[in-house]
Write a protein that binds this DNA or RNA. Structure first.
Length: 893
RNA sequence: GGAAGCAUAGCUCAGCUGGUUCAGAGCAUCUGCCUUACAAGCAGAGGGUCACAGGUUCGAAUCCUGUUGCCUCCA
């Protein structure tokens, strides 16, 4: 050994060394040239984010795709960046300020933003730094941020453009209100959760007049003084505007048009009728609260009911609730309290346990409050009518989804699309370019100066002395949907080279849960502003879960820290562990043992490297002809194996079945190269290997490293650099990926089987591997064994091989259709041997019978493919031949 | 409540248009081994009526129908 190589692979120093080598040589930087482009845009992680297991999986996959493309001679560009994540970041900054004793409400917009930017500068880059540890081959010179000036400008331009096209409007509507974030949310940002709640049955007394009217009527009904309604939200009774029953409900017909009193505050509300009311739910009487329920709002609008909003933007009760006991208190506190108060006052008939679903904010977790507010909307139906390709391209596979069944989900969403609420009552984000005059008119314009000009034309009578810009910012996704265009500066007038060259991008790798938020909308933006798709393939990764199938999350504490994992197992090990069990679209059940498997694999490769590096080499001329011939056979065999496997690997990669491809590489290296090939050519201890075989062995190793490199970039670079001389500036990152070459396949099937069977025998009889055997092979095809005797002798420790000789008192082994007889130096049990052979004969007879059934079935012979029938005949012949051999050996015992 | 999907070894999954790649892989388990590259290893082994019930067919894990059980998305 020329130099000492450590017995176990230690990734730490190697990984940092090579990553900085790659960066300093700018291998990841791409600019347009004459090569075929390959591009991926990263799903920009939130600036607030730290790397979690989902990112690890997602970015490993992107890196594999990018590195493969780069090695295959394409000009690969993976654009990194971060998302300003308006609501998530604003929440973090507010919290940080609170910890410092500063209230957001005490700050001006400008001061707040100053703090927010400070925060972003400090923490915003963390996640990208972490990606470097993973080995991500992003073009870091192209790092973008959704709120950097040029990207923000694109967002504003797009807003104005859409407004001018009549695709954006402003309207008072019921929205999903997040009382914690104090902002509106889009439907997609609301997560429904099952909760155990209570259904309260509350009595509303009729007014005196109503009672009298009913008594005076001619209806034959028993009179009661009240109606009962069922609700899960008793605090909202203070906002009730009516009670509604189904007009077809016989039980309540007499009540229609009468009046009832809201408990405690005694507001008179009318009992109205509408078929919307389900007769079989609750009591059949519905309380109508237009301000606090979407359906009630619609109902109220239809019947002209008053909208009584009793909640503040933070979800506290306001003075409209009228009852002093509750004003200024939180909605949930009031719910508890009012239930007790109602019960004490005798308004509660009963309380039932009830399971229902409650909408919560994706970002803050707060329970969503339906709230009537003035917001900005994108008219999605109109948008899609203008861009029908948004659906068509996915349905006809112009944009391919992996796995394909995601197409259904996509179509369903598109078919049921709702308008997109894009305004957010936040400060962190792109401020909406709408300008208001004091008399309530507005124009949409990029700057105040332009706004003034527009006012002069559109609202000449307005007072434009004090124009005020809209306070709200745009939904984060209103900037992310432009990402594949804006990262290449596609909205700018000049510098079109990048966008022309890299757009449309090739692959997008993302989580299925943001298909609507992001994927669908990028497709929309792509067609609207570029006139073509933003990417050709979408690979949906699964969700990373723990062994108990629970989603990994910070709050559950079931997620390992990715950086700790990398420190412990190496980036290569972690990448392999994540990928080995993650078919597209399937959730991955993460377990540290998989990462351990990855680390073990790296170590295995490392030791193969130690072996090869440690070999002593001598010229071929110094070796015996039979050894050289044997080694040639081994080389030829592995060459064929490699090419067969490579073809399969490429096939899998083409289908985006990366975990299957990786598994094939794993087996190719571990089983074929290490367990078989290296053992076949390895000289006995102390002896040398011939030069030509050594050279070939190194070439194989190199090729294996190239194929594995996209998956495990660090160890492959280290070995690729060390296995042979490299020039300064060379790297496996930019080396060419092997192509499938022609090969002559020599099947060593029978040889390998013979070796395995002899090893098995040794195992069963407890005979040491050091003890050599003499064997006799009975076969009609000597050519399947004769040239490979050397290998059988070496790998199964066999001292001599004879063909078709008598083998009295030998133990018989079945190899394919042949028999191998092994001479043991111990006494063999003739009776047991005979029994074993008889069993085998019995099985073969049964097997033949089943084949005969098929062959004597006229319909089978007539309908099945001829080659299939032929195969069945062959099976029968083989079995017959084998029975013959077995009978002979039985006689010999 | 609506839609789609899934059900194959202990676990995670492959199995295209029905027939030798038809019952597979990796991990885990078990049994031997510290055999000069590797115990993070080596050599072997055992494990499945392909969820259940019908049907189509000469032939079904594969196609059809129903049942049950899971998961996801939407409301």
């Amino acid at each position: 050994m020329t130099k000492e190589i450590s017995k176990t692979y230690s990734p730490q120093s190697i990984e940092d060394k090579w990553y900085s080598y790659w960066l300093s040589n700018k291998y990841f930087h791409a600019k347009p040239d004459e090569r075929e482009p390959y591009s991926i845009v990263i799903p920009p992680p939130n600036v607030t984010g730290v790397l979690h297991m989902g990112h690890m999986l997602n970015n490993t996959i992107q890196d594999v795709l990018t590195r493969r493309a780069r090695m295959q001679g394409k000009n690969a560009c993976w654009v990194p960046g971060t998302d300003h994540a308006s609501i998530a970041t604003e929440a973090k900054v507010v919290q940080m300020l609170r910890e410092r004793g500063i209230k957001k409400s005490d700050l001006s917009r400008e001061d707040f933003l100053k703090y927010a930017w400070e925060w972003k500068e400090k923490y915003g880059g963390i996640i990208l730094e972490q990606l470097k540890k993973l080995g991500a081959s992003c073009d870091w010179d192209r790092t973008r941020f959704t709120m950097e000036p040029s990207l923000s400008e694109a967002v504003i331009d797009v807003f104005i453009d859409l407004y001018n096209k009549g695709l954006i409007y402003r309207e008072l509507r019921m929205v999903n209100w997040d009382p914690l974030g104090k902002t509106a949310l889009s439907d997609e940002e609301v997560i429904f959760k099952d909760v155990n709640s209570k259904l309260y049955y509350i009595k509303y007394h009729l007014t005196e007049n109503s009672k009298i009217e009913i008594q005076n009527s001619n209806l034959d009904i028993s009179i009661s003084d009240f109606v009962v309604i069922a609700t899960t939200r008793p605090e909202t009774i203070l906002a009730d505007a009516a009670i509604c029953v189904n007009p077809n409900d016989e039980r309540f017909k007499h009540l229609i048009g009468k009046k009832a009193l809201v408990p405690f505050i005694n507001r008179e509300i009318e009992i109205i009728a509408d078929e919307y009311v389900a007769m079989d739910f609750g009591t059949g009487c519905l309380k109508v609260t237009p301000a606090h329920d979407k359906n009630d709002y619609d109902l109220g609008k239809k019947h002209g009911l008053e909208v009584i909003d009793i909640l503040t933007e933070e979800g506290f009760l306001n003075e409209k609730a009228q009852d002093e006991r509750y004003i200024g208190k939180d909605r949930f506190a009031v719910r508890k309290q009012i239930a007790i108060d109602l019960e004490e006052a005798g308004f509660i008939e009963k309380i039932e346990e009830y399971k229902n679903q409650v909408g919560t904010s994706e970002r803050t977790g707060a329970v969503i409050e339906p709230r009537l507010t003035l917001q900005w909307w994108v008219d999605m139906k109109k948008f899609l009518a203008k861009n029908p390709q948004v659906l068509d391209a996915v349905m006809n596979d112009e944009i391919k989804f992996h796995p394909v069944n995601m197409k259904n989900t996509y179509k369903h969403w598109i078919d049921n699309i709702k308008d997109w609420c894009i305004s957010r009552q936040l400060w962190w984000g792109q401020q909406i370019p709408a300008w208001y005059s004091e008399d309530g008119n507005f124009v949409v314009a990029k700057t105040e100066v332009e706004a003034i000009e527009k006012f002069k034309i559109q609202h000449p009578t307005s007072n434009i002395q004090h124009l005020k810009q809209d306070e709200d910012v745009l939904d984060t996704w209103f900037s992310s949907w432009l990402w594949p265009i804006s990262v290449f500066d596609g909205f700018k007038e000049e510098g079109k080279e990048d966008i022309k060259y890299f757009y449309p991008t090739n692959d997008l790798v993302t989580a299925p849960e943001i298909m609507f938020f992001w994927v669908a909308r990028m497709i929309m933006a792509g067609y609207e502003w570029m006139g073509q798709k933003p990417f050709s393939n979408v690979y949906y990764t699964g969700i990373v879960r723990d062994k108990q199938r629970r989603k990994m999350s910070k709050s559950l504490g079931n997620s390992p820290d990715p950086l700790d994992l990398i420190t412990q197992y190496g980036a290569d090990g972690v990448r392999m562990g994540m990928l080995i069990c993650s078919p597209a679209g399937n959730d991955i059940l993460f377990d540290e043992s998989q990462v351990e498997q990855g680390r073990n694999f790296a170590n295995k490769i490392w030791n193969a490297f130690r072996l090869v590096k440690g070999l002593t080499i001598k010229p071929d001329a110094e070796f015996a002809a039979d050894l050289l011939a044997s080694n040639k056979i081994s080389e030829k065999w592995f060459d064929a194996r490699f090419n067969i496997a490579l073809a399969e690997i490429e096939e899998k990669c083409k289908d985006y079945k990366l975990s299957e491809a990786l598994m094939m590489i794993y087996k190719l290296i571990w089983d074929d190269y290490c367990a078989w090939y290296l053992e076949m050519i390895k000289p006995v201890y102390g002896e040398a290997l011939n030069q030509s075989t050594y050279d070939q062995t190194v070439i194989f190793f190199e090729k294996l490293m190239l194929v594995l490199h996209p998956f495990m970039p660090f160890i492959t670079e280290e070995i690729w650099q060390e296995i042979t001389e490299r020039k300064e500036g060379e790297s496996i990152c930019v080396a060419s990926y092997p192509a499938v070459e022609t090969y002559n396949y020599t099947s060593l099937q029978n040889t390998f089987e013979t070796i395995s069977k002899i090893r098995e025998l040794r195992n069963n009889k407890g005979i040491s591997p050091k003890e050599a055997f003499e064997i006799v092979i009975k076969t009609s095809q000597i050519e399947l064994y004769e040239p490979y005797q050397f290998l059988i002798k070496k790998l199964a420790n066999v001292s001599s091989i004879l063909f078709n000789e008598e083998a009295p008192n030998y133990v018989s082994l079945s190899v394919s259709t042949d028999q191998v007889f092994v001479k043991l130096n111990i006494e063999i049990d003739a009776v047991a041997e005979a029994e074993k052979i008889n069993k085998e004969i019995e099985y073969l007879i049964g097997f033949m019978a089943s084949v005969d059934v098929k062959l004597s079935n006229e319909k089978f012979v007539a309908n099945a493919k001829p080659e299939l029938v032929e195969k069945e005949r062959q099976k029968k012949d083989d079995a017959l031949a084998k029975i013959e051999v077995l009978k002979q050996s039985l006689a010999g015992l």
